[in-house]
Nucleic acid binder design. Sequence first.
DNA 1: GAAGTTTTGGATGGATCAGTACAAAATGAG
DNA 2: CTCATTTTGTACTGATCCATCCAAAACTTC
Lengths: 194, 194
Amino acid sequence: MARPRKFDEERAVDAAMEAFWAAGYEATSTQDLCEATGLGRSSIYNTFKSKHDLFERALARYMECKSAELTELLESELPARDKIRALLQRVIDEESAARGADGRGCLVVNTYVEVSARDDAVAAALARDYDKRLAAIRDVLESGRRAGEIAAGKDARTLAHLAIASVSGLRVAARAGVGRAELEAIADAALAAF
Amino acid sequence: MARPRKFDEERAVDAAMEAFWAAGYEATSTQDLCEATGLGRSSIYNTFKSKHDLFERALARYMECKSAELTELLESELPARDKIRALLQRVIDEESAARGADGRGCLVVNTYVEVSARDDAVAAALARDYDKRLAAIRDVLESGRRAGEIAAGKDARTLAHLAIASVSGLRVAARAGVGRAELEAIADAALAAF
DNA sequence: GAAGTTTTGGATGGATCAGTACAAAATGAG
DNA sequence: CTCATTTTGTACTGATCCATCCAAAACTTC
């Protein structure tokens, strides 16, 4: 038939994801993407339509990974509040490690802020991801409410929104330079609302 | 002596702030800054050292304004928790209006995410601003704790961190497309932690 | 009004941007 | 081996990036 590809498309998307994650969309040049993926310009443009297209792929991949991690975390046998606690703790671990290592934060939060407002396709993808996470957490809290672990008067959906907002809040705080111990105290205080 | 300036430096910084606020640092070109301020290239580079310098000025101005607003808000006669409630409500008003009007969010949060990690000077300025806000809110909560409005077992400083994190969380949620009514429910739920 | 000083506009520089054109290289099918 | 097809490397496009240069304009002081 024809000459076969010398690279793995998935690995290229992964590498691009790392690049966008580290520097953001605008600040990542196509040259950076070539170096990160190890591909030539032609290969990238032959495989992906554009930088924007590659970004959407990379973002989708990131969201997939994170979504899988969340699902796994929420599937444990812990009480609902402890699941939320574990979620917040994981975020703190990520962000604290990231500060020392690379300080790149979370690609989803970064993209909300940097890209979302001026890019409808990206905004829509982020909104779908948000809804998925919201539903997963709401289910957990709803079960917890039925099990009596969460006060009956509290709305599971609202608390799920709050859980996600708490995650974002911790991430921004971490980026603001708040240290690990303080982040853990904040998370602990936030749990009082659940 | 010499030819006087035809423009007001402060107004120029204001206009630049609006531009950076609307589009972010990278996506705002020097051409955009000329158009926003109404100045020529020479005037801008004669007055400010560089785009980066102008950005620092604009960010400082933004933080000054917001800081003044916060101080004013915290000076009311309300109980401590109601002050926090008012703070969250103001954020919701801002973000909900912004979504329809321009969707630019908060320049400080945007800058944390877009610039902070790769710009020490900006990161330091943001950190100073964070500390100021933290201290102001901590004082309010400390008073509230002494007045018995806040449980004695809670640490005012941690709650102040939490208040700031709640603001960031709401802002990111708003950018994620969460509507006004839901934001208000989230804020209400978050207040249970105070 | 002349001299001296600063601002201003417009042209320009060199770098980098995203994306394309094209021919050489590489492969499987016949 | 030859042909058809796809990938790949390199050179290149036109646009835009931030910043600088310079001469003309504008204003104060003398």
